[in-house]
Design a protein around this nucleic acid. Structure first.
Lengths: 195, 195
DNA sequence: GCTAAGTGGAATCTCAAGTTCCGGTTGGGC
DNA sequence: GCCCAACCGGAACTTGAGATTCCACTTAGC
């Protein structure tokens, strides 16, 4: 593979992640091509159909996430701190693109990619380990789990097609709020009138 | 206007709210018609263009929200309780449809409808009043505001086009979590490593 | 019972996006 | 520096989903 071709391929994956984040997985191929600064022809030569492109985006994404979680787990002093670090890392601008792109991946694409599924499963498992440790340490309430965290990460980080800007902006702000709600001390029965 | 025509018109607005919630404001007119159980012809007779339909949905929505907030404010014993009641009311299945529909309204449509803007402004003001009272009563942290609440309501309540089901499901669960994060007692500096 | 108001949906139009294809470039081995 | 296989861009053509029109057929309601 020629060096310039390789470069273009990378640019395409990055562009696709961004565009899909903004406009959904079905964003026009031409938009992706334009963002990547290449012609549609080039895009089609590398990715014969949309699913191939989506799959590439998924791979790119999951590896980035796994690496970031590793780092957070290593550098933080306790589990809760690691979770906090990772979540805020994920909330940084630019990250959103990838998160959305993944949230938006059609199930079929995910399932048929063993590699992707494997990395993702490892990531979830490690994340889950952190959550359990944080709960054991008494810093996180026990009625929420990894799935909730992942879910919320998606919610705040995605900038889905059709929903104009205000929805899900300021991810870091809202994710911190959410983490505050997940602290062990925060769990509450219905305040105001008792339920 | 004949009685049956009136009935159809109502059915159309309701159907449009649902459909727009599920598929975005640009959902096919035919889908709306089908959901309402009328022909496309009928739809076009009442709403010559898409904006007319969107505007009708917006009116429907804002009035419903305003009424619900009134009721919550009256029946709850304190401001924080009223907020909680209203938020959970809004999270009930079916409500989401309307919320999304609004979140998704193009700015132009909103601006050019004085009536809509007026009702909405009143609603926001009343909601803001509750928030301030709750803060004064010491039950809600002071670094969040109505805008945050409204925003989060949208986030969890919307089921935007293109994002397949898991995102923003279980609105009540996550909204309670958020409310827990908004309690006065929840505010935290960065836990784990101090920041 | 009459008729103006209302209706459904087939038929037609429109246009955005997908996909192909080829004349023109260019990286990089020699 | 030369050469050509690999690569590129994007015009041109195709396709399909959805918008919009239109009219023969119903039916409230006087």
């Amino acid at each position: 593979m020629r060096a310039d071709a390789r470069r273009n391929l990378d640019k395409i994956v990055v562009a696709a992640a961004e565009v899909m984040a903004e406009r959904g997985v079905n964003a026009p191929m031409e938009t992706v091509a334009k963002r990547a600064g290449v012609g549609v022809g080039t895009l089609y030569r590398r990715f014969p159909d949309r699913n191939a492109l989506i799959a590439a985006v998924g791979d790119h994404y999951i590896h980035t996430m796994a690496r970031a979680l590793d780092e957070a787990a290593e550098s933080a002093s306790d589990a809760w701190g690691a979770i906090w670090d990772f979540v805020l890392w994920a909330a940084e601008p630019g990250r959103a693109a990838l998160a959305t792109a993944l949230a938006v991946l059609p199930q079929e694409v995910i399932v048929e990619r063993a590699e992707f599924a494997r990395v993702r499963a490892g990531w979830v498992e490690q994340f889950d380990g952190l959550v359990r440790r944080a709960q054991a340490e008494g810093s996180m309430r026990t009625d929420v789990g990894v799935e909730d965290l992942i879910h919320l990460l998606n919610v705040f980080t995605c900038h889905p097609a059709d929903l104009p800007e205000p929805v899900a902006s300021q991810p870091a702000r809202y994710l911190s709020l959410m983490l505050d709600g997940m602290k062990a001390s925060a769990a509450t029965p219905r305040p105001g009138t008792p339920s």
